[in-house]
């Protein structure tokens, strides 16, 4: 549609621009500046240290642990959520009685507040009276220290995350399966291809863009994880489940090492930015 004034376009964009400037651009600039100082709050009385905070971070054992934990969590969570989502989507993408009711039921965990989700699973993981250990004991299996064994706590976190967000990957992949034309399958069946061959040569390649999108979306979110760690394990036992967001929170809001926390924030923004660039490239290619 033709339009005379470019000023009008900018005017309509102005409220959103103003909010973004105040809530993201200015804070990002400020956190970048703070990351160059040793400070417990602002710039008053702060000592300039250049890249000193960054150097200190990389020598910090807890920073390395938090980085490693974040990577482990993101990989495990993304892999299990895409795997579960794909399995569910393949199951539901057929003729099943009551399909109309099954889909919303599977989506339910996804709309819940993370705090509600955490409240449920903390009870389920309880060693003495938790539902999971009660089931294990009833089956004559020794109970598990879901949240207090450092080797298991990360897996428990992944279980909760998968329960809450596999519904999202499920919906994305189901949408992907539904745009594959039925004729493609029929032609393959006429040619005598078995189900495994059909899955590998037709379903997977045609679903690839959706798998990529789901994996990217989940890994960006997994990288940010805070709420669940905060309320489920508090980062523990020890540092076993401390992720980068948790680390920044502790440094900035508990130890008031604002300079160091700002440097860690900037590193997170850079990593998220790289992931976001992939996502943006994908999305813009899809929409043009």
């Amino acid at each position: 549609m033709h339009q005379r004034s470019k000023a009008l376009a900018l005017l309509l964009l102005l409220p959103a621009l103003a909010l973004f400037a105040a809530l993201t651009l200015y804070p990002l600039g400020r956190v970048l500046a703070l990351s160059l100082f040793v400070t417990d709050y602002g710039f008053e009385g702060a000592t300039f240290t250049g890249l000193g905070n960054y150097v200190e971070l990389f020598s910090h054992r807890f920073f390395r642990i938090a980085t490693w934990n974040t990577i482990v969590f993101a990989v495990l969570a993304t892999a299990s959520e895409v795997g579960i989502g794909l399995t569910l989507a393949l199951l539901v993408n057929g003729r099943i009685p009551g399909r109309r009711f099954v889909i919303p039921v599977i989506i339910m965990p996804y709309v819940l507040s993370t705090m509600v989700v955490t409240a449920i699973w903390r009870a389920w993981f309880h060693y003495d009276f938790g539902f999971l250990n009660n089931v294990l004991r009833a089956a004559q299996v020794p109970p598990v220290e879901w949240l207090f064994n450092p080797d298991i706590a990360m897996l428990s976190l992944v279980i909760v995350d998968a329960w809450q967000t596999a519904p999202l990957t499920f919906i994305i992949l189901l949408a992907g399966l539904q745009v594959i034309p039925r004729e493609v399958y029929e032609a393959a069946e006429v040619d005598g291809a078995g189900p495994v061959r059909i899955f590998r040569s037709i379903t997977l390649p045609l679903l690839a863009p959706y798998l990529f999108l789901a994996a990217l979306l989940r890994s960006v979110d997994a990288f940010k994880i805070f709420d669940k760690v905060f309320a489920l394990t508090g980062g523990g036992p020890g540092q076993a489940t401390e992720t980068l967001s948790m680390y920044v929170y502790r440094l900035g809001f508990k130890f008031f090492d604002v300079g160091l926390a700002s440097a860690a924030s900037i590193i997170m923004v850079v990593v998220a930015g790289v992931l976001a660039a992939f996502y943006a490239a994908r999305l813009l290619r899809g929409s043009s």
Binding site: Q3, L23, L28, V31, F226, S265, M268
Partner: peptide, 30 residues
């Protein structure tokens, strides 16, 4: 619907996406 100079609209959309994917905790201090 409207035309922006120098593909500003595309730049804005990418920026919006970056904001959406930025870890909220990294903006918490400022």
């Amino acid at each position: 619907r409207l035309r922006f100079p120098a593909r500003l609209d595309m730049a804005f959309l990418v920026f919006v996406l970056l904001v959406k994917l930025t870890p909220p905790i990294s903006l918490a201090i400022p």
